[in-house]
Design a protein around this nucleic acid. Structure first.
Lengths: 198, 198
DNA sequence: TTTGTTTTATGATTTTAGTCATAAAACCGA
DNA sequence: TCGGTTTTATGACTAAAATCATAAAACAAA
């Protein structure tokens, strides 16, 4: 998102997180802008029964958790390191100052928020009113577009576990496994030694 | 969102829509920024079986449908006039120009997008993994916060039909009716001649 | 004020994803 | 390479919301 040199100019601080570490917690006050230097981060919620819902997965050069910086709300979800991560942060004040002085970065932020809102809109409609196979397939197609899934001979390799797909679509892992099997039978995707290709 | 005088400066055009009129259609190229002068607009999708999902409802002074202007994507949903409406539009080019020259308006757009992303995040987690009563109650609480529902003696008047609540939460109207009844019994809300108060 | 439409309401039945139990294959760390 | 954990897999059963049918109340409009 924002060039590292610029973030360093504005007092950027680098932090390391291990797999599974909590980066910030639902309900807390947001104090920093976060951007990934390396590694993978997910944002999630848990419902009353402890079932996880993944809001999104973020990769190198992406930022996350900035909307509540602008609305003075608390974090609506947790951020968790999916792999070992290096994250650069700048304070809220510095971030707002940075935006004020850089209209081109403001526009980048607007584009990024718009993209994420677009994803949420599409998935909201899917989750609320489509059958499991439809939901899984749309998530896969969206993710190919959005994230940089590798194109191989068999097609795009969907780099998610069945459990992750379940947590992103609000389904159960058994339901996802069955949906993927059924989609394979219909020829909508391929399963090659347990990995999903589209 | 944006002052009318400013929009007029940038070539704003006023248009009238009757209840039920389609303002723009899912899948079409976005060409304009839209802002409501008067009336009420919903954005919606229909799934394969024709079931409606309401993405959001928008009121006076609010804008809608701008994310795809920034990402060069097509509209992810329809916009429909819920009541007779007056809408002011400016072209995409003029809108981008306006933002470039007005950092304060850029910030307003960022805040607005952030707020909507926040709503989507909260509702996504709700819809995907909570029981119907929880979903209905959260939608009601969020809507009180977000829209200007009137506070009366009995509490906030929830100015939605059961069907609208169903379409916003991805439930069926019968399920919503039963959930609301049950929530009333538990004392979480009041029903006074069919109207819901919280 | 009659008529047609929308909204709220309720009971019976069906469908479908969730739940539970179990297990094999793959992966990972010591 | 051994043992524990994670991931994928499958069958049987259950629970919960959707569906279907029906109707009364409220509202709108002619």
């Amino acid at each position: 998102m924002i060039a590292l040199v610029v973030l360093e100019e504005f007092g950027g601080t680098k932090k390391h997180f291990k797999t599974g570490d909590l980066i910030f917690k639902e309900g807390n006050q947001p104090l920093y802008y976060h951007q990934i230097i390396s590694g993978e981060v997910k944002m999630n919620n848990f419902n009353d029964e402890g079932k996880e819902f993944i809001q999104g997965i973020f990769y190198k050069d992406q930022c996350f958790g900035e909307p509540p910086l602008f609305t003075d709300q608390v974090y609506p979800a947790n951020a968790v390191a999916v792999t070992d991560c290096e994250i650069i942060t700048i304070t809220k004040d510095k971030f707002l100052e940075l935006l004020k002085n850089n209209p081109d970065i403001s526009l980048k932020v607007i584009k990024n928020l718009s993209q994420r809102l677009y994803y949420k809109s599409v998935m909201a409609a899917e989750i609320s009113s489509q059958d499991p196979e439809h939901r899984v397939l749309r998530l896969i197609d969206y993710s190919i577009e959005q994230f940089h899934f590798k194109k191989e001979n068999a097609g795009f390799l969907i780099n998610f576990t069945r459990q992750q797909i379940a947590d992103l679509t609000g389904l159960r892992v058994e339901t996802v496994i069955r949906a993927i099997k059924s989609l394979e039978k219909k020829g909508d995707l391929k399963i090659i030694n347990r990995k999903v290709y589209r």
